[in-house]
Structures are given as structure tokens and as C-alpha cells.
Design a protein around this nucleic acid. Structure first.
Length: 259
DNA sequence: ATGGTGGTCTTACCA
């Protein structure tokens, strides 16, 4: 069994101890991180290596930043979408344990009238083409991360309240559907889940306590991996900690023999 | 209740 996870940590500097402890306590094999907010020269390599993990990262100062922590080594690392100029560090693609793993920190989009929203839609279009190309090359593909899209109304605590907002707009949901149409599966929906299951809660107004959240962190699997998926879980426990990330980690268990 | 919190080489911006 292979445990593959994704977590937007909202600053790895602040959350390092929580991440290490979560890795230890869950026995996670591969963890994709988003919003590390660290320059590469500041990445805490030693903290992971001394625990027996390999690390790969693509960061920048203050914003964005992605990384992958793994018990297995990496090859064929990409830190940008080919032929797409983008100063923001939001993608990390690696081959690890026989899986092509694509870790995404999709732009938030700010608001529908914002230039950032156009950037988000354009970025999603570019990344979708890239993933389509990757799926022709690699037999086992997992696309994970903070998608900043709640795919359906059941992924939103109060759909009426969110109409007209980013994370739920029709164009964003269409972009998510386009990803699924490449042959990817939203692993969470392989299984019967509790209602009101979310992966992100605003820090403000007691949103977590009141479970006013959205499900915007996803693990998408191609057909070959999806048939091996035995569980897909949102772990709310770390969100209850002191000084938590605003996101919960999500993970899947794959009945997958590492070759 | 249109507020509120948290992160960052902060006092503005992002989420």
C-alpha cells in the first residue's frame, strides 16, 4: 500500500514541526506541499532528510511555492509548465515510485472582476494542456494540490452565499471538468463520504468551528491508479491544532507495488 | 452581523 497526500501548509517555516509530526504519525509515503513560501535556499532539507525522506522543491519569497516529500527518490523533475512564462512557483512534476505526480497550487483568483481571475483561468488552461501531454507519456498519473476550485455545490458549506465568488464560479468549475475529461478521477468521490466534507476553512469568524468550509484540495487519479485507490480521506485533525494551516491534508491509499 | 484572522525579510498584499 502506498499513502499519497497533499497539504497546503500556508508557510512551511511556521508549519514545519506540524508537517514532520503528521508524516510520522500517519506513515505517509509521498506528501505534496503547497504555499511553502520559502526561497529554495531556505528550504528545510535537513529536517526531512534526517527522517529518511527525499525532498524536491520550487519556491519563491513570501508567496506560493511547492514541494514534494517522499520515501522514494525522484526523477524527471519539472518546476514550470513548458512554454509558459510564469514568475509564480505553482507547479512541480516528478516521477516517484512509478507514479507521475503533478503537484499544483492553482491561483486563488481574488474576485471575478480581477486580473488575477483571468490569470487563474489562463493558468488552468495551460496546466490542462500540460497534463494532457503528460498522460500520453506516463502510465500512472496523479494530479494533486490546492486547486482553489470547489467542483460542486456539495463541496460548499452554503452554495447560495458563495454565488458570484471565486472558487465556485462556472468558468472555474468548467476548467475542473476539463481536467476530469482528460481521464482523471476525483478520488474523493470514489467513496461514500460524509456530507459537508471540506478541506479549507477561512481563519476568520470561527469558520472551522462552524464547519463553514469548501472542498478545494483534491487528488485526481488516472484510470490505472484510480482502480487501485482504496481510500480517499480529508484529515481534519491538523486543522484543530494551535496555529494551524487554513487547509487540511488530503490523502489516498493506493494498492500499488512500488517497483 | 458585509465583520473577522493569519502569513510575510509586513505597515500592503495575499489568501
Amino acid at each position: 500500500m502506498l499513502k499519497l497526500a497533499s497539504w497546503n501548509v500556508n508557510s512551511l517555516k511556521i508549519r514545519l514541526d506540524q508537517v514532520i509530526q503528521w508524516l510520522d504519525s500517519t506513515g505517509t509515503d509521498i506528501l505534496a506541499l503547497q504555499e511553502t513560501k520559502l526561497l529554495d535556499e531556505h528550504f528545510p532539507v535537513t529536517a526531512f532528510v534526517e527522517k529518511g525522506y527525499y525532498v524536491v522543491f520550487s519556491g519563491q519569497k513570501t508567496y506560493n511555492g511547492v514541494a514534494i516529500i517522499s520515501r522514494y527518490p525522484f526523477s524527471d523533475v519539472l518546476t514550470a509548465i513548458p512554454d509558459f512564462e510564469d514568475p509564480q512557483r505553482r507547479i512541480l512534476a516528478v516521477t516517484v515510485a512509478g507514479i507521475r505526480l503533478i503537484n499544483l497550487y492553482v491561483p486563488n483568483g481574488s474576485e471575478l472582476t480581477s486580473e488575477k481571475y483571468q490569470y487563474k483561468l489562463n493558468w488552468l488552461q495551460r496546466v490542462t494542456s500540460f497534463i494532457q501531454q503528460q498522460m500520453t507519456i506516463y502510465p500512472n498519473v496523479a494530479v494533486v494540490g490546492d486547486f482553489n476550485i470547489a467542483p460542486e455545490d456539495r463541496d460548499v458549506h452554503d452554495p447560495a452565499e458563495w454565488i458570484g465568488s471565486v472558487l465556485v464560479s462556472p468558468a472555474e468549475r468548467e476548467a475542473f471538468t476539463q481536467l476530469l475529461q482528460l481521464g482523471l478521477h476525483d478520488s474523493f468521490r470514489n467513496f461514500i463520504q460524509n456530507e459537508q466534507a471540506f478541506s479549507w476553512w477561512d481563519y476568520r469568524a470561527g469558520a472551522f468551528r462552524r464547519n463553514r468550509g469548501l472542498r478545494i484540495d483534491h487528488i485526481l487519479l488516472n484510470e490505472a491508479l484510480n482502480t487501485l485507490c482504496k481510500q480517499s480521506i480529508i484529515d481534519k485533525e491538523p486543522r484543530k491544532a494551535e496555529r494551524p494551516s487554513d487547509h487540511a491534508p488530503v490523502w489516498v491509499e493506493l494498492d500499488f507495488k512500488v517497483s
